[in-house]
Amino acid sequence: MENRGETRPLDLFSSGHRACAGCGPALTIQAILRATGAKVFVVSATGCMEVVSSQYPQSAWNVPWIHSLFENSAAVASGIEVALKVLGRSDDGKVVVIAGDGGTVDIGMQAISGMFERGHDICYICYDNEAYMNTGNQRSGSTPYDASTTTSPAGAKSFGNDRPKKDMPAIAAAHGIPYVATTSVGYPKDLTTKVQKGISVDGPAYLQIHAPCNIGWGFDSAKTIEIARLAVETGLWAMYEIVDGKLTNVMKVSKSKPVEEYLKQQRRFAHLFKMPGGEAQIKIIQDKASANVDRLRVIAEEESR
């Protein structure tokens, strides 16, 4: 590619892809590849990031990259990892999956479970934008409680999504894999550290990175990072590691902000501020966030003792 005199080296996930302005997942992938460097094999699942980055004949990927289907990324990655091993090429680089929450916690679950259980040396990263965004913001197992999506719409008889977010990191950890971590695009340093740990661990690693979608969630495209940080500051998104089965490195939220600050900035929660009974729903969400913060604070304090 022609060098246009820019001082920064070419990003491995190059600009010019077709993601929306303010896209959290696109920033996430850029940050992931800055953390990994060029010695990686990336497998993408069908979803927004695959679609915006790989419209023939243009590709945003400056690393070896493969997309097969929606639910089989962990299996395709297993094939690459095993092939590198038999062909004596394991030192070429690490195999990394980058998939959305739907491709991970729902339809891809079986293949991921197989990959974890077989112990492949693969770092699986889920960028969590909390719905099936590529197909138009339908609910996934990772959609939070009360979010209005196109298949869990708020209405006279509905406050939106009536189930809590699936705890995929706990499911991953239950496989006994050496490294599980959660992080957020709002905290690039934390993200970088965890990605680097994830790719350096020997065996399967699972990372879930909270990545706001301004279109689906309904907020101003300039506020992606702010929203990502608010999720952590309100206790709605927790950041921690599970190393060899032990919960550790919990990010402390010393004075958590009320959940309203996070909810009110997003169209997907707007109904909670208008509908009768909305207040009680916000209280439920607040209680969940507070319980989360308290639980993690205890663990964090135990650790620092």
Binding site: F41, V43, I66, S68, L69, E71, N72, A74, A75, V76, A77, S78, G79, I80, E81, V82, A83, L84, V86, L87, R89, Q110, A111, S113, G114, E117, R118
Partner: peptide, 22 residues
């Protein structure tokens, strides 16, 4: 021999491995 958890994954493993040159 990758002892996969389904035929869907069997073929998917073959795809990944074949694309790597195996």
């Amino acid at each position: 021999y990758v002892k996969v958890e389904s035929e869907h994954s069997a073929m998917s493993v073959c795809i990944g491995a074949s694309a790597t040159g195996a």
